[in-house]
Measured scan of single mutants.
Amino acid sequence: MEVRTIKVFTTVDNINLHTQVVDMSMTYGQQFGPTYLDGADVTKIKPHNSHEGKTFYVLPNDDTLRVEAFEYYHTTDPSFLGRYMSALNHTKKWKYPQVNGLTSIKWADNNCYLATALLTLQQIELKFNPPALQDAYYRARAGEAANFCALILAYCNKTVGELGDVRETMSYLFQHANLDSCKRVLNVVCKTCGQQQTTLKGVEAVMYMGTLSYEQFKKGVQIPCTCGKQATKYLVQQESPFVMMSAPPAQYELKHGTFTCASEYTGNYQCGHYKHITSKETLYCIDGALLTKSSEYKGPITDVFYKENSYTTTIK
C-alpha cells in the first residue's frame, strides 16, 4: 500500500517557510505537534488534498525554529505562539472599519479597549522592536488589523473576551517599542525636605499616572512627601515624541487643539466601556464603527496623549 502524501510549508514567522512532505494517514499533531492554519487549530486533523502548498504555523520545537521565533517575536515564552494563534482565530472574524481616516474595530468580545489602543497607536510616533509587531502594525494602518490585535493580546497575556485596560495595554506595548531616546527629568520640591531631581528613561519617561493635564504637570502637581507634608512635583525636561497622561476616570474637559487623542471610560472596574476622542479640525468621538463630532467635550476621561518633541522648564 502506497503512502499518500502532500507537500506543505511549516513556519513560526510566515517569513521562513520549511518544506514538509506530510503523510495523509496521520494527523498534523502526530507529525508536527500543535499546528495552526489561519489561526485555526488543526492539530487533530489529517492532511487533505486542499492543504497542498498551504502554510501551517507550528510551535518552535527545534533550534532553527526557536531562533526564527525569537528573532521575529522577541520572546522565548513557549506558550506565546499558541496564544497568538488562538487569538487570531477570533480577531480574523472582527470587522476593521476605516473611521475618520483611522483603522478602528467594530465592537465584539469586549474589544473596546483594543480599538482605543489601536486608534491611539496610529496617532503617536512609535516604532516597535519585534519585527512581528512592526509588520502587523503597518498592515493594521492599511486596514488589516487582525494579526496586530492578536499579537497585542498575546504580548499582554490576554484572551479574547476578557476586559482590558488601555493604560495597561499601552504599557505592555511600550515595553516592546523603541523608547531608548526618551528621557524625563522631574523635580520634587518640599518646604521641609528641599528639592530632589529624578531622571527617568524609556517607558517611565512617557507615562504618568495622577493627572490628565500635561500643562498642569509642567506647572506642578501636589504629591505627598515622605515627611508627610505636601510637596510639588513638576516637569523639568521632556525628550520624547509623545507623552501619555493618565488618571482614574473623572469628568474632564478636553479643549480642541490642546491634545492629540484621549480615552474615555464609562462604567466601573468590573464592567465598563471605552471610547476614543481625537482632536482634528474639530473633536471626534470614535466608538467602534461609530463616529460623532463636537466642538467641545466633557466626560469621564482616563488617558490623554500629547505630541511632544523637546521641553525644558522655565521655572527657576
Results as ranks from 00 to 15, higher is better:
residue 3 V to Q: 11
residue 4 R to I: 13
residue 6 I to W: 06
residue 6 I to N: 02
residue 10 T to S: 08
residue 11 T to C: 09
residue 15 I to Y: 08
residue 15 I to R: 11
residue 16 N to K: 02
residue 16 N to T: 09
residue 17 L to V: 07
residue 23 D to A: 11
residue 24 M to Q: 11
residue 25 S to L: 12
residue 27 T to K: 06
residue 29 G to P: 05
residue 30 Q to V: 11
residue 32 F to W: 00
residue 32 F to Q: 11
residue 33 G to D: 02
residue 38 D to H: 11
residue 39 G to I: 07
residue 39 G to P: 02
residue 41 D to E: 09
residue 43 T to H: 12
residue 44 K to M: 13
residue 45 I to G: 12
residue 46 K to Q: 12
residue 46 K to H: 12
residue 51 H to K: 01
residue 52 E to W: 10
residue 53 G to Q: 12
residue 54 K to F: 13
residue 54 K to Q: 14
residue 55 T to F: 05
residue 56 F to L: 11
residue 59 L to D: 14
residue 61 N to W: 12
residue 63 D to R: 07
residue 63 D to P: 06
residue 65 L to R: 11
residue 67 V to F: 14
residue 68 E to H: 07
residue 70 F to L: 15
residue 73 Y to M: 03
residue 75 T to S: 13
residue 75 T to V: 11
residue 77 D to Q: 07
residue 77 D to R: 03
residue 80 F to E: 03
residue 80 F to P: 03
residue 80 F to S: 02
residue 83 R to F: 03
residue 83 R to K: 13
residue 84 Y to P: 01
residue 87 A to Y: 05
residue 88 L to T: 07
residue 88 L to C: 04
residue 96 Y to N: 06
residue 97 P to K: 10
residue 101 G to A: 02
residue 101 G to D: 09
residue 103 T to V: 13
residue 103 T to C: 08
residue 104 S to P: 01
residue 104 S to L: 08
residue 106 K to D: 14
residue 107 W to G: 02
residue 108 A to G: 07
residue 111 N to K: 02
residue 114 L to E: 01
residue 118 L to Y: 09
residue 118 L to I: 07
residue 118 L to H: 03
residue 120 T to M: 11
residue 121 L to K: 03
residue 121 L to P: 04
residue 124 I to Y: 07
residue 125 E to I: 05
residue 125 E to P: 10
residue 134 Q to D: 09
residue 137 Y to L: 11
residue 140 A to V: 13
residue 140 A to W: 06
residue 140 A to E: 10
residue 141 R to S: 08
residue 142 A to D: 14
residue 143 G to A: 03
residue 145 A to N: 03
residue 147 N to L: 05
residue 148 F to G: 04
residue 149 C to P: 05
residue 151 L to S: 06
residue 152 I to P: 05
residue 160 V to H: 10
residue 162 E to K: 01
residue 164 G to W: 06
residue 164 G to R: 06
residue 165 D to V: 03
residue 169 T to N: 07
residue 173 L to T: 05
residue 173 L to G: 00
residue 174 F to S: 05
residue 176 H to Q: 11
residue 177 A to Q: 08
residue 177 A to N: 04
residue 179 L to V: 03
residue 181 S to W: 13
residue 182 C to P: 02
residue 183 K to M: 12
residue 184 R to L: 00
residue 186 L to W: 10
residue 187 N to V: 12
residue 190 C to A: 05
residue 191 K to F: 03
residue 191 K to S: 14
residue 192 T to H: 07
residue 192 T to V: 11
residue 193 C to K: 14
residue 194 G to L: 01
residue 195 Q to V: 15
residue 196 Q to L: 09
residue 198 T to E: 10
residue 199 T to W: 03
residue 201 K to E: 07
residue 201 K to C: 09
residue 202 G to N: 04
residue 206 V to S: 02
residue 207 M to C: 10
residue 207 M to G: 03
residue 208 Y to C: 09
residue 209 M to A: 15
residue 212 L to A: 05
residue 215 E to N: 07
residue 221 V to M: 08
residue 222 Q to N: 10
residue 222 Q to F: 08
residue 222 Q to M: 10
residue 227 C to Q: 02
residue 234 Y to S: 06
residue 237 Q to P: 00
residue 238 Q to R: 01
residue 239 E to Y: 08
residue 241 P to M: 01
residue 243 V to L: 09
residue 248 P to V: 07
residue 249 P to Y: 01
residue 252 Y to L: 08
residue 253 E to K: 11
residue 253 E to H: 11
residue 258 T to I: 09
residue 259 F to M: 02
residue 268 N to Y: 08
residue 268 N to G: 07
residue 270 Q to F: 15
residue 271 C to E: 08
residue 273 H to W: 02
residue 275 K to R: 15
residue 277 I to K: 02
residue 277 I to C: 06
residue 282 T to F: 06
residue 284 Y to R: 03
residue 286 I to K: 00
residue 286 I to Y: 06
residue 289 A to C: 06
residue 289 A to F: 05
residue 290 L to Q: 13
residue 295 S to W: 11
residue 299 G to I: 00
residue 299 G to W: 00
residue 300 P to Y: 14
residue 302 T to H: 03
residue 302 T to W: 00
residue 302 T to N: 04
residue 304 V to F: 04
residue 306 Y to N: 02
residue 308 E to S: 08
residue 309 N to S: 13
residue 314 T to M: 14
